[in-house]
Simulated assay, not measured.
Amino acid sequence: MSDPSCQGRRMTTQTQEPTAPSRARQMLNKVPEVTAYFWLIKVMATTIGETAADYLNDNLGLGLTVTTGVMSVLLVIALVAQFRCRRYVPAVYWVTVVLISVVGTLITDNLTDNLGVSLWVTTTVFAVALVAVFALWHRQERTLSIHSIVTTRREAFYWLAILVTFALGTAAGDLTAEQLNLGYAPSVGLFAAAIAVVALAHYRFGLSAVTAFWVAYVLTRPLGASMGDLLSQARADGGLGLGTFVTSGVFLAAILGLVTYLTVTRRDATEARRPGAVEAP
Rank of each mutant, 00 (worst) to 15 (best):
L219E: 05
Q26N: 15
L252D: 00
C85L: 09
T46K: 01
T67D: 02
A129P: 07
G243W: 12
S22W: 13
W94R: 00
R274Y: 08
D54E: 09
Q7Y: 07
R142Y: 13
R87L: 06
A185C: 06
P18K: 06
A91V: 11
I149W: 07
A234D: 09
G104D: 05
T96H: 05
A24V: 13
L106Q: 03
A24Y: 09
G63N: 06
A193C: 12
R25S: 13
V128H: 06
E17D: 15
T143P: 03
L56R: 01
I41M: 11
G63T: 00
L168R: 08
R142D: 14
A20S: 12
V73M: 05
R273A: 15
V125Q: 04
T122P: 03
T211H: 05
A234Y: 07
R9S: 14
F83S: 07
T260D: 08
A199T: 10
V131W: 01
T170Y: 05
A269G: 05
P186C: 10
S226F: 11
A167N: 03
V95L: 15
A24S: 14
Y217S: 09
A194N: 06
L242E: 04
R204N: 00
F157Y: 15
Y55F: 15
A91H: 04
A234G: 11
L62C: 02
R84K: 13
T123M: 07
R273G: 07
T47S: 09
G238A: 07
N57H: 06
P186M: 14
V121I: 11
L40A: 14
V76I: 14
L56I: 07
L256R: 01
Q82A: 11
V246L: 14
T65F: 11
Y88N: 00
Q233T: 13
R25L: 14
A20N: 09
T67A: 02
Q179H: 11
L168M: 12
V131Q: 08
L74H: 01
N114K: 12
I77P: 00
Y88E: 00
I255T: 04
R153E: 10
A209P: 02
A53N: 01
L160W: 04
V89Y: 01
A171S: 15
A236N: 10
P18E: 09
Q14L: 15
A20T: 09
R25M: 12
S22R: 15
V150W: 06
M11T: 14
T143W: 12
Y261N: 01
T124H: 03
A167V: 08
T122A: 04
T112C: 06
R142P: 07
P21F: 12
A132N: 06
L207N: 07
P281N: 00
W94S: 03
L230F: 04
D174K: 13
G63Q: 04
E155G: 03
T105E: 02
A172M: 14
A272R: 10
Q26A: 15
F205N: 06
